[in-house]
């Protein structure tokens, strides 16, 4: 029996004020997969994520998440954005931030329920940030903030985790820790991760989707320098990362 598809894109095109951003994208992500999306800036990576999250509609073609339109099923997606869209000095605690994940699942009035607090606590424990829960968000380091945003995505109790450049602004040691954590989460979640660092990503994921307006999918084992040249057009140094 083949595993069921959780995310499907069929002949998806997207253009922004007449300018094509994505051209005939076909992608089928199976349950339990760990897929990396790489590609140059302005290659359409963020647009692809927004289509899957239902924040944008394709110009043509079809996007299906868990068998339905993304707008309907996206509450089963835990999303970690690339640049936090909030003001960094916003007066909010770590716990309040993570609790926001419960918005669609809790009562519509007043505060959060005990079950919400348990889910938030559980998510914080999973990313080893439970000791930060009463800290103000703007007092965190880059790595801590990224873990908290990952907790917020986990507190959605998702089936799919989507991360946009989760390690863009943090140092390599923390980057490795976060990828190891994702690898553990992959035992129960389908994970899709966008990164510019193809060599680093390919050490962790099952498949790599190379996106530069069009999409090519490769098995992670087949990533080499030739492929990088094709994707980026010029020669790119693939830095080998050693993980111990």
């Amino acid at each position: 029996m083949t595993p069921e598809s959780v995310i499907q894109l069929e002949h998806v095109n997207f253009s922004y004020s007449g300018q094509p951003v994505l051209i005939d994208i076909n992608l089928d992500i199976k349950k339990g997969e760990f897929i990396g999306v790489v590609g140059p800036n302005a290659g359409g990576k963020s647009t692809l994520l927004k289509l899957i999250l239902g924040l944008l509609k394709p110009t043509s073609g079809r996007v299906t998440v868990l068998g339905d339109r993304p707008v309907v099923t996206r509450r089963h997606i835990g999303y970690v954005p690339q640049y936090p869209r909030f003001a960094r000095d916003f007066p909010i605690t770590v716990e309040q931030t993570v609790l926001m994940a419960r918005l669609g699942m809790t009562k519509w009035w007043g505060g959060y329920t005990a079950a919400d607090h348990r889910a938030a606590r559980q998510a914080l424990l999973e990313t080893e940030t439970a000791d930060l829960q009463h800290r103000r968000l703007d007092s965190l380091s880059g790595g801590q903030l990224q873990r908290v945003l990952l907790s917020r995505a986990l507190a959605c109790e998702p089936e799919i985790l989507i991360l946009d450049e989760p390690t863009a602004n943090i140092d390599q040691r923390v980057e490795t820790e976060i990828y190891d954590l994702l690898k553990r989460l992959n035992e129960r979640l389908t994970i899709m991760i966008v990164s510019h660092d193809i060599a680093f990503v390919s050490a962790y994921v099952d498949r790599v989707a190379c996106l530069n307006q069009t999409l090519m999918v490769h098995h992670a084992a087949h990533i080499d320098g030739n492929l990088l040249d094709q994707l980026y057009g010029t020669h790119v140094h693939a830095v080998e990362h050693l993980h111990d």
Binding site: P81, M100, L103
Partner: peptide
């Protein structure tokens, strides 16, 4: 709070 803090995430959570 959610709408003031992060509109995109709030929308994704069905607000």
């Amino acid at each position: 709070l959610a709408v003031s803090f992060d509109e995109e995430f709030a929308a994704l959570r069905g607000i």
